[in-house]
Amino acid sequence: MANHSPLAGRLITALAVLWLSVASPAYAIQPNEVLTDPALEARARDIGRELRCLVCQNQSIDDSDADLARDLRVLVRQRLTAGDNDRQVIDYVVSRYGDFVLLRPPVKPETWALWFGPALIGGGGLLAMALYFRRRSRASATEETSLSDADERRIARLLEDGRG
């Protein structure tokens, strides 16, 4: 077994990649929570991925094993079954827990700094760099033409001498 052929090695790598790519992420959703209607369940999953588990904070309620996350998953499904649309379900949870429960913060005046700050700082940096280089190249360009008459005459004389 010590000397695999290169082909066998490549085959094993390919299989490993294939295996990893078909493996699905582990959800904390229990079988008894899943709705019988696949369309509703799919919507519940979409909503669950957007909602933060308030106990562990860096997981969605779909990923979290916390009891409160389970109760929120059940609540989402109850409201969907009762006929709420996705927006209404999310608004219901936000009305109780605030924007913090959303894993993707909404764009509004309070969060403008968060959404546009990086672009603004990066853009400002690029602008400063562009200005800096333009000024430098212009400065060197004006230097070339700003030789005094005396200098011009000296250069002409030196060139003459060099030729002679």
Binding site: L54, V55, D67, L68, D71, L72, V74, L75, R96, Y97, G98
Partner: peptide, 13 residues
Amino acid sequence: PDSHAAIAFGVTG
């Protein structure tokens, strides 16, 4: 037991 009132109050712990 199922967090009905807890969620109504926005309880996290």
